[in-house]
Design a protein around this nucleic acid. Sequence first.
DNA 1: ATATCGATTATCT
DNA 2: GATAATCGATATG
Length: 205
Amino acid sequence: MSSPVPLPRAFYIRTPRRVARDLLGKVLVRQTPETYLTGRIVEVEAYLGVKDAAAHAAAGPTLRNAVLFGPPGHAYIYFIYGNHYCLNVSCEPEGRAGSVLFRALEPLCGIEEMAQSRHLEIGSPSDLPKLTSGPGRLAEAFGITRHRDNACDLTDPASSLWIGDDGHPRPKILVTPRIGITKAADDLLRYLIRGNRFVSGRTKV
DNA sequence: ATATCGATTATCT
DNA sequence: GATAATCGATATG
């Protein structure tokens, strides 16, 4: 396993479906002078922009969702249910609002610090998924907030949050309906690594 | 094992 | 004033 290399802007100038599929197996990095956290991306969802009833962009641009309409490769972070932050990356050329939601990571570096951020004690390996399995959980584990990280450039390793490729082999992928939405709930837009134990939600199929 | 429910607030109608 | 791309706790089989 080598150290991650940032994914270029061009990676994100594609449809959310393609970006979502290709993000599986890549690495999310939180890097500051004090901190180095990494996690493998094991579950994501594609949101298709204004034509997607389930997307935050569906009603057109607002102050909240402005990043979705901006240049690709940037972090769109929203606050939900009075409790949780969730991370997206903007896709497609500027002006189109497609994005990919990060739903689960496999913790790699900085597990102890993630546990602190999550206010959890890790007693056994079976506790690890509680760190980063779920969009709100992974955001908390990585200290992601709207105030701190919204509109951050995820292609720039000088950002404290970025996405890289560490040469991990291309995973086997499973596609299912998205989770937690009421509109357009049947579309197959959730992508996950088959058999990965850090994937969120139920393990049906 | 699955089901239901309360928490808590930014954002939009 | 209603809603929400969630989580964790509680209840029940």
